[in-house]
């Protein structure tokens, strides 16, 4: 398989502090890859290292099979044929819409008529037709966003890096922009690395997801796979929205605030078990609990319930009133990180 990006034991240090540690990641050509993690997990630094804006302190990065970054080699950003959309878009305020794209084409020594064609082509690609002469401050949030994407594509990159590209637009716009991004990527057949801290945004667009925490890559895989089988407690909580409870493992069973479960791995002592909200529901039997709060989610209500000294989230079609006494029923086996002790 041909890879657009390969990272081998990549480490990046900034100011003497290691921000990315021993990262291994292969992204095939044409894949929409989402890098997800909380703020400060090093995902932006990882992305900037791929872009060549930060130097690798260990390991290497290959783009299209060529080493572009290693501890002793560093290709300039402009030599990597990549496009990047910055978190705050970083549009150039001094230039009008068309000029933002044209400047890049001028650097590539494109002749003038071709340049004009390419600019209108790029603008229509991101649905900004006829806005050539607009000033940057005259654009709406969504238009600015699309212009930033067009600018990233102007240099005909083989890899598109998106750093929180939807972070600066409001929620109502975010879903449609995310869809547009995905369509665009499909149309161009280009590899994309999309960095976000928003699990919903990430799972919506990704072919595959990589979860990052504290400078380390925790897990890579399809969205469904990661949610169903998180590799670590962090992945479980951050991506799968699992609620982790403490349990006590005995010979054949695990005792928890929500009841007793099977112990297929033969664990011993204090263990952690996790439930996604959709694994729990209200029923006629099960552990007793009291509803603390609730919030509407499409398809039902998410309730915060106190049960046996722990707080869990329960998804149910119908809302229960706050303070109501409920019984929590378990729909499928809990997740437990193989042998991790509390």
């Amino acid at each position: 398989m041909k890879y657009a990006v390969e990272c081998k034991q990549l480490s990046v240090a900034l100011g003497g502090r290691e921000i990315v540690r021993g990262a291994n990641l292969n992204i095939p050509e044409g894949e929409y890859h989402v890098l997800i993690g909380p703020s400060g997990s090093g995902k932006t630094t990882f992305l900037r290292a791929i872009a060549g804006l930060e130097r690798a302190t260990g390991g290497e990065i290959l783009l299209g099979g060529n080493v572009v970054s290693s501890a002793n080699a560093h290709a300039a950003p402009e030599a990597r044929r990549i496009g990047m959309v910055f978190q705050d878009l970083a549009l150039w305020p001094q230039w009008r819409v068309a000029r933002q794209l044209e400047e890049i084409l001028i650097i590539q020594k494109m002749p003038k008529p071709a340049r004009a064609r390419r600019v209108s082509e790029l603008l229509s690609l991101v649905k900004l037709d006829g806005m050539e002469k607009r000033a940057i401050y005259e654009l709406s949030g969504g238009e600015a966003q699309r212009l930033a994407i067009a600018r990233a594509l102007a240099g005909d990159p083989r890899l598109l890096l998106l750093d929180e590209p939807l972070g600066s637009v409001d929620e109502s716009l975010r879903a449609s922009l995310a869809r547009e991004l995905r369509e665009l990527q499909r149309k161009l057949q280009i590899a994309v690395v999309h960095v976000t801290h928003d699990q919903a945004e990430g799972t919506a667009v990704a072919d595959r997801i990589t979860v990052m925490c504290a400078g380390e890559l925790q897990q890579t895989g399809g969205a469904a796979e990661i949610i169903a089988n998180p590799a670590t407690r962090f992945v479980a909580e951050f991506v799968g929205k699992y609620v982790i409870l403490r349990g006590d493992a005995r010979d054949g069973a695990i005792e928890s605030p929500l009841g007793i479960f099977n112990n297929p791995h033969g664990l011993h002592g204090a263990v952690e078990i996790g439930f996604r909200p959709d694994q729990l529901t209200f029923g006629e039997t099960g552990a007793d609990g009291i509803v603390k709060s609730r919030v509407y989610r499409p398809g039902g209500w998410l309730h915060e319930v106190e049960a046996g000294g722990a707080t869990v989230f329960v998804h149910a079609r119908d809302a229960r009133s706050i303070g109501a006494k409920v019984m929590i029923e378990i729909l499928s086996d809990p997740w437990h990180p193989g042998g991790v002790r509390a």
């Binding site: 496009g83 910055f86 150039w92």
Partner: peptide, 27 residues
């Protein structure tokens, strides 16, 4: 001068574009 705007220029057109951007900013 905004760091990200300069980096965006550097990715797209190298130091030359970044310098041009800076010049245009100071113009």
């Amino acid at each position: 001068a905004d760091r990200h705007a300069l980096e965006a220029a550097e990715i797209a057109g190298g130091r030359r574009l970044a310098r041009k951007l800076l010049f245009r900013q100071a113009l």
